[in-house]
Amino acid sequence: MFENGKNSFAKASLSSIEIGRAALRIAITANRSEEMHVKESLAEQGIRATAVDFGGEFIISIVKIIERAVVAAQRQGLVTETHVGAGAVAGAAHEALEQVKNKAVGFNVGGKIGLARCGEHLCVAIYMGVGVLNLNEMCVGLAHRSLASDE
């Protein structure tokens, strides 16, 4: 994990389940102020996290959702700006989207991507509404990737 160009090693005792819970926690925030509160709370536990909104027709939006996840993770220092860091985020985001695609194909979606990182654990959570007009179904996808602590 990089912070201001320097290595910042997080608590090694946190498990992938706890990091997944953190990604989901930030993904379900209702607004930016709640998001910042959750981000600060997670930082106290040694977890770096960020979130980004998305919306549109599902199939057309898949690439944009993955791109937004990668850019957010790199800008917030969750991963380095290398193909290894980008690949880990893109892979986890793609897997999370795979988990919700059967509900989402052919519909409009809107929601938030939550990303959390601690040590070697990186988790991506997708929380979104799927539907037409105001007839929405909710769904969640969550995926994990492991990468070196300094990546």
Rank of each mutant, 00 (worst) to 15 (best):
I28N: 12
T29E: 15
T29S: 08
A30E: 14
N31P: 01
R32P: 10
S33V: 10
S33R: 02
E34Y: 10
E34G: 11
M36T: 11
H37P: 13
V38F: 07
K39T: 07
K39C: 05
S41F: 09
S41I: 13
S41E: 14
L42K: 03
A43G: 12
A43N: 13
E44W: 07
I47L: 08
R48D: 05
A49Y: 08
T50Y: 03
V52E: 03
D53A: 05
F54Q: 01
F54R: 00
E57P: 04
E57S: 10
F58M: 05
I59N: 11
I59Y: 14
I59S: 11
I60L: 09
I62F: 04
I62L: 15
V63E: 03
K64W: 07
K64Y: 07
I66V: 11
I66L: 10
E67L: 14
E67H: 07
R68L: 14
R68E: 07
R68T: 08
A69L: 04
A69R: 11
V70Q: 01
V70P: 01
V70H: 00
V71F: 02
V71W: 05
V71P: 04
A72C: 01
A73L: 08
A73W: 13
Q76W: 10
Q76R: 11
G77S: 08
V79F: 04
V79H: 15
V79N: 06
E81P: 11
T82Y: 11
T82P: 00
H83N: 10
G85T: 01
A86C: 03
G87L: 01
V89K: 03
V89R: 00
A90K: 09
A90S: 12
G91E: 13
G91Y: 06
G91C: 10
A92W: 02
A93F: 00
E95W: 09
A96S: 12
A96C: 04
L97T: 01
L97H: 01
E98W: 10
Q99I: 00
K101R: 11
V105E: 13
V105L: 07
G106D: 14
F107L: 04
V109H: 02
V109I: 08
V109M: 14
G111E: 05
K112G: 02
K112C: 13
K112L: 04
I113K: 07
I113G: 01
L115H: 09
R117T: 09
G119C: 14
G119W: 05
H121E: 15
H121V: 02
H121T: 11
H121K: 12
L122I: 01
L122H: 03
V124Q: 05
A125Q: 06
Y127G: 05
Y127I: 14
Y127A: 12
G129R: 15
V130C: 07
V130W: 06
V130S: 00
G131E: 00
G131N: 02
G131S: 09
V132K: 01
V132W: 07
L133H: 14
L133W: 03
N134V: 13
N134I: 09
N134D: 11
N134K: 11
N134L: 10
L135A: 11
M138L: 04
M138Q: 12
